[in-house]
Simulated assay, not measured.
Amino acid sequence: MEEIAPLAEALVAEHGLTTMLTSVRRASRDLVTAPVLQAPPLPVAFPLGARDVREIGLTHARRPPVEVRPRVLGPASEPALHYPLGDGSDAGALVGLQRLAAHLRAGVPGTDGRG
Rank of each mutant, 00 (worst) to 15 (best):
D30G: 13
R29H: 12
E2S: 07
P6V: 00
A13H: 11
V12H: 13
R26C: 03
T19F: 10
S28Y: 10
L21G: 14
A27R: 12
L11Q: 03
I4V: 12
E3S: 14
T33L: 09
L11Y: 05
A13V: 04
A27H: 12
L11A: 09
H15C: 06
M1D: 02
E2L: 02
L11N: 07
E9S: 14
T19M: 08
S28Q: 07
L31Y: 07
E3C: 07
T19N: 14
R26S: 04
E2G: 13
T22Q: 08
A5E: 11
V12C: 12
P6L: 00
E9I: 02
I4W: 07
H15D: 01
A8E: 00
E14I: 00
E2M: 02
M1C: 08
V32R: 15
R25W: 01
L7M: 06
A27I: 02
M1A: 11
T18K: 12
E9K: 14
H15N: 07
L17M: 14
E3A: 10
E9L: 09
S28W: 07
E2Q: 03
A8R: 05
R25P: 09
L7T: 07
T22S: 13
V32C: 10
L31W: 06
M1Y: 06
V32H: 15
S23A: 15
S23R: 09
A13L: 14
A5L: 07
G16M: 03
S23W: 02
L17E: 08
I4M: 06
E14A: 12
E14P: 00
A27Y: 06
D30F: 10
A27C: 12
A10F: 08
M1W: 02
V12S: 09
S23N: 01
L21N: 14
L31S: 05
T18I: 03
E9F: 11
S23D: 00
E3V: 12
A8G: 09
H15F: 05
A27N: 06
L7H: 09
G16N: 06
T19V: 10
V12R: 07
